[in-house]
Amino acid sequence: MEVRTIKVFTTVDNINLHTQVVDMSMTYGQQFGPTYLDGADVTKIKPHNSHEGKTFYVLPNDDTLRVEAFEYYHTTDPSFLGRYMSALNHTKKWKYPQVNGLTSIKWADNNCYLATALLTLQQIELKFNPPALQDAYYRARAGEAANFCALILAYCNKTVGELGDVRETMSYLFQHANLDSCKRVLNVVCKTCGQQQTTLKGVEAVMYMGTLSYEQFKKGVQIPCTCGKQATKYLVQQESPFVMMSAPPAQYELKHGTFTCASEYTGNYQCGHYKHITSKETLYCIDGALLTKSSEYKGPITDVFYKENSYTTTIK
């Protein structure tokens, strides 16, 4: 009895394709271990004539594949690729409408935090270190965002349907971005203890939790000093293409032309909904596939993004 075979390709990165001759009487799992086709788990399936010449994702289970996976995804987590594939199996079914010149995501599976993050990423200057993220990001900007969303979920250790947080998501993504040249110098002034300067680099240099107003941050924000008295913390120097200011959701007025974009969060910790506000020729609110415009805006804002380049204080 002759062994019926077909020729397929296996890959971990969709760049390096490895030619395989597979036995049609055995499952993919018996031949390769966990195997995925377009995100779908085909591990328990036997090869079919229609699979001839198709590319299958496999887990990096030998040295060659491990090197290829690390170079593309910059992670050695053995569960990463499987999590990416199972997320992709959902995100490829989502709709990605162009809204006001940006790629958004039609609401499904509690994905409003991903839509808000995706919209924000198209408006701030950011370059990702893992080629996987950078490639998928370019495709997302062009309207094909399924891979990018699935990668975000995998890097953030999230599953489809789980509630997510924009600030946490951005923080994970910033860790995989090139923020080497970003720098922030802060000064804390206390009447009792004097003053202390701190220099922050990388992710810490672009994120701040405690106030939404970048102007206020430049002037000074009140913080408790270690001595128990009130101290003032203010920005001395900022070198970065953008800054992200966050605070627990509270009524906040966004003035046209003073910011790049913002995240609105309605609801409580267990259950809520994100919308995205962007400042173009007027203010726009993007909620999944829905767009509304207004000249002014007041609502429960939790993150505001500002364009920056270089700032030095005039406070002496």
Rank of each mutant, 00 (worst) to 15 (best):
T11G: 06
V21C: 15
M26G: 11
Y28S: 06
G29C: 09
Q30S: 14
F32Y: 08
F32I: 12
P34V: 13
L37A: 12
D38Y: 09
G39D: 09
V42Q: 12
V42Y: 14
T43N: 08
K44Q: 14
I45N: 14
K46V: 14
P47W: 03
H48P: 12
T55L: 06
T55G: 06
F56S: 04
P60Q: 06
L65T: 14
V67H: 14
A69P: 05
F70I: 08
Y73M: 04
Y73N: 02
H74R: 10
P78V: 09
P78G: 09
L81F: 15
H90E: 11
K92I: 11
W94N: 03
N100D: 11
G101W: 05
G101N: 09
G101L: 05
G101H: 06
L102W: 06
C112M: 03
Q123N: 08
E125Y: 06
Y138C: 15
R139D: 11
A140T: 10
L151Y: 05
T159K: 15
E162R: 03
G164V: 05
E168W: 06
Y172N: 15
F174Y: 05
F174H: 02
N178S: 09
L179I: 04
V188I: 10
V189G: 04
K191R: 10
Q196G: 06
G202F: 01
V206C: 09
M209L: 12
L212W: 02
S213V: 05
K219T: 12
G220E: 05
V221P: 01
V221C: 08
Q222N: 11
I223S: 13
T226P: 13
T226C: 11
C227E: 01
C227R: 01
T232H: 07
K233I: 13
Q238P: 00
E239M: 10
A247Q: 06
Q251R: 08
F259T: 02
C261K: 01
S263I: 12
Y265S: 00
T266Y: 08
N268E: 14
N268F: 11
T278K: 00
S279F: 01
S279K: 01
S279Y: 01
K280W: 08
T282G: 15
T282W: 08
L283I: 15
D287K: 00
A289H: 15
L291T: 15
K293H: 13
Y297E: 01
P300V: 15
T302G: 02
V304H: 00
V304K: 00
K307C: 14
Y311D: 07
I315H: 15
I315F: 15
